[in-house]
């Protein structure tokens, strides 16, 4: 079972790192939201899954408490992260930030 934990931790570390790099490398705010949201959500889910497996292996009152709390944290991240990034992207567009090298901008045309 500990091999599974190490695998989850490694996947989480790799994809969270990818999110941080994407945040630095991409050219404008929308593409940065792309990279940062997708990668950190995926990576954090695996990091937290490692803790869920750890709690399940340990069992007992403390182990079950760990599983419940970590699983709830996972659900919160999965539900709130895309919503938050959607709010930020919409705010950026309303504040007048143009997408970098956009071939089409239907939202601008609507106004």
């Amino acid at each position: 079972m500990s091999a599974l934990i190490y695998a989850f931790l490694a996947i989480g570390a790799v994809f969270n790192g990818l999110g941080a790099v994407a945040l630095l490398r991409f050219p404008d705010v929308y593409t940065r939201i792309h990279g940062a949201t997708k990668c950190t959500t995926f990576g954090s889910i695996f990091s937290i899954l490692a803790v869920v497996v750890h709690g399940a292996v340990r069992g007992g009152g403390d182990g079950i408490g760990m599983v419940i709390r970590a699983a709830l944290a996972l659900v919160f991240l999965l539900l709130t992260n895309p919503t938050g990034s959607h709010a930020l992207a919409r705010a950026a567009h309303r504040a007048g930030i143009k997408p970098f090298q956009a071939v089409v901008d239907r939202l601008e045309e609507r106004k």
């Binding site: 994809f15 994407a22 991409f26 404008d28 990279g35 997708k38 995926f42 090298q101 089409v104 901008d105």
Partner: peptide, 18 residues
């Protein structure tokens, strides 16, 4: 999606639009 982001971070090949 994550592998796609990795590809675009490395190659920088994007064609964005709304």
């Amino acid at each position: 999606a994550n592998l796609d982001v990795a590809y675009r971070v490395i190659t920088g090949r994007i064609r964005p639009g709304i």
